[in-house]
């Protein structure tokens, strides 16, 4: 199991489009992926769950990955969140 902490970098927060990207990326892997914000943890493969978090700009999120391809999954998710900043900048 891998748990990593990130700060949301894009100005609008994780709204529909970034949430869609997060769900798409997570769904490519067999591992279970969870995302947590302010004490709520949801399945990162569920769009409604991720939207419910309402993770705003500057807030802290935790990504938890568990499964056979967890290493590949966390690399892809980290790139999406930190490098690509959900393709919004």
């Amino acid at each position: 199991m891998i748990i990593k902490k990130y700060t949301v970098q894009n100005k609008l927060g994780i709204h529909a489009r970034p949430a869609g990207l997060l769900v798409k990326t997570s769904s490519r892997y067999k591992s279970s992926v969870y995302i947590a914000n302010e004490g709520n943890e949801v399945n990162a493969k569920s769009i409604m769950g991720v939207l419910m978090l309402g993770a705003a700009y500057g807030s802290e999120i935790h990504i938890r990955v568990e499964g056979e391809d967890e290493n590949q999954a966390i690399v892809a998710l980290e790139e999406l969140i930190m490098v690509r900043k959900f393709d919004e900048e």
């Binding site: 927060g13 709204h15 529909a16 489009r17 939207l51 309402g54 705003a56 700009y57 500057g58 807030s59």
Partner: peptide, 21 residues
Amino acid sequence: PAKEFNERLISTMQSKALKRQ
């Protein structure tokens, strides 16, 4: 509905971000 939902979500998150700041 999808766009309106998203607009509401964005404005909620922006006021959260402002409060944190």
